[in-house]
C-alpha cells in the first residue's frame, strides 16, 4: 500500500547522544501490519536523498490506527525524519515483507542485539496476548543505551529479560552470546528432554533474533546446535522494498541443498535461521 500517514508524535527518546527517536503514525498501515514487517519511508520531498528508508514496525495499534517506529539517526535520511512535526504527513509504502511466526504455544526466546530490539517489540506485543512464555536476552553497549532504548517499558510489562553490556554497566558484562550460552546451559536438560521425546507443543521452544549480522550468525548456530528453531530478521540495503529490483538479496540453501538468493524486502526480512548462508564467497 502507498499512503500518506499522519504524524501523531515524533520525538527524541532517551539520551540525546544516542539519537534515538520514536515516531507514531496514524493511517491505514496499522490495519494489516504484522510483527516483523517494515515500512518504506519517503524522508524528503526532493530527489536527494532519492530512495526511501526501510524502518521496522515496532508497535501496532489497530484500534487507534497507529503504528510505532523507532529509529536511530544514522545519516542524512534518518536525520531528515527527525524534522517531521505533529500533524504533518509522511509518504509510506507498506506494510512490507514477511514477518515473524507468532507462536501460539510453548516458549519464545527473543535475542536482540542493540537496536535490533525494535522489530521485536511488535512481536512481544503480539505474543503477550497468547499463553506463550517469553524470555528476552538483549545485548547492548552500556546502561545508557538500555535506559534510552525502551528497557523501562519492558520492566513495566514485567517481561522476563536478561541484558548484557560491553562495559558491564548493566547486567552481565560481555556479548549476548555469553547470555545465550548461559541460558542454554541452564536449560539443557529440559531442552534435551524436549527433543528426545518430541515433546508436546506446549514445551516447544523457539527463538527469534534481530541484530548485527555477526551476532545473528553466532546465535543461529548456537540455537540450531540445541535443535531450537530460530527465525532471524535481516537487514540489507534496499531500493524498491517490494521485491522488484533484486538489490537486497541474501543467500540461502534451498530445500534440495541448492544455493539460491532470496529478497530481504519481500521473502524476508524474517528468515528461517537454518537456511541462511552467512558467509558468501563469490
Amino acid at each position: 500500500m502507498l499512503c500518506e500517514e499522519k504524524v501523531v508524535e515524533n520525538k527524541l527518546i532517551g539520551h540525546p547522544a544516542l539519537h534515538l527517536y520514536k515516531l507514531v503514525l496514524n493511517g491505514q498501515i496499522a490495519q494489516t501490519a504484522e510483527p516483523g514487517q517494515f515500512v518504506h519511508v519517503k524522508v524528503g520531498q526532493t530527489h536527494d536523498p532519492l530512495l526511501r528508508r526501510p524502518i521496522s514496525i515496532a508497535g501496532i495499534d489497530r484500534k487507534r490506527g497507529e503504528i510505532t517506529l523507532y529509529y536511530r539517526v544514522a545519516g542524512r535520511g534518518t536525520d531528515l525524519l527527525t524534522r517531521l512535526k505533529e500533524n504533518e504527513t509522511l509518504s509510506i509504502l507498506g506494510p512490507l515483507g514477511t514477518g515473524f511466526t507468532i507462536p501460539q504455544k510453548g516458549e519464545l526466546l527473543l535475542l536482540a542485539g542493540g537496536i535490533g530490539i525494535f522489530p521485536l517489540f511488535s512481536l512481544i506485543q503480539a505474543v503477550e496476548q497468547t499463553k506463550v512464555k517469553i524470555k528476552l536476552l538483549w545485548g547492548g553497549e552500556n546502561r545508557r543505551f538500555f535506559e534510552s532504548a525502551g528497557l523501562e517499558e519492558l520492566r513495566r510489562i514485567a517481561l522476563d529479560y536478561e541484558v548484557s553490556t560491553l562495559d558491564g554497566s548493566l547486567g552481565t558484562e560481555g556479548l549476548i552470546t555469553a547470555l545465550l550460552q548461559d541460558y542454554l546451559a541452564r536449560n539443557s536438560r529440559t531442552l534435551k528432554f524436549a527433543c528426545d521425546f518430541q515433546m508436546q507443543d506446549q514445551h516447544i521452544l523457539r527463538a527469534a533474533a534481530c541484530g548485527p549480522k555477526g551476532m545473528l550468525k553466532a546465535v543461529t548456530s548456537m540455537c540450531l546446535q540445541e535443535s531450537i528453531p530460530i527465525e532471524v530478521s535481516l537487514e540489507e540495503r534496499m531500493a524498491c522494498g517490494v521485491g522488484a529490483c533484486l538489490g537486497c538479496v541474501c543467500t540461502v540453501r534451498g530445500e534440495s541443498g541448492n544455493v539460491q538468493r532470496k529478497r530481504v524486502c519481500k521473502d524476508g526480512p524474517v528468515f528461517n535461521g537454518g537456511e541462511v548462508i552467512w558467509d558468501e564467497e563469490n
Binding site: 530512495l51 540489507e236 540495503r237 538479496v249 541474501c250 543467500t251 544455493v259 538468493r261
Partner: peptide, 10 residues
C-alpha cells in the same frame, strides 16, 4: 545468482 551484496549505493 548475480553479484554479492551490497548491490546498491545511493
Amino acid at each position: 545468482l548475480g553479484n554479492p551484496v551490497p548491490r546498491l549505493a545511493e
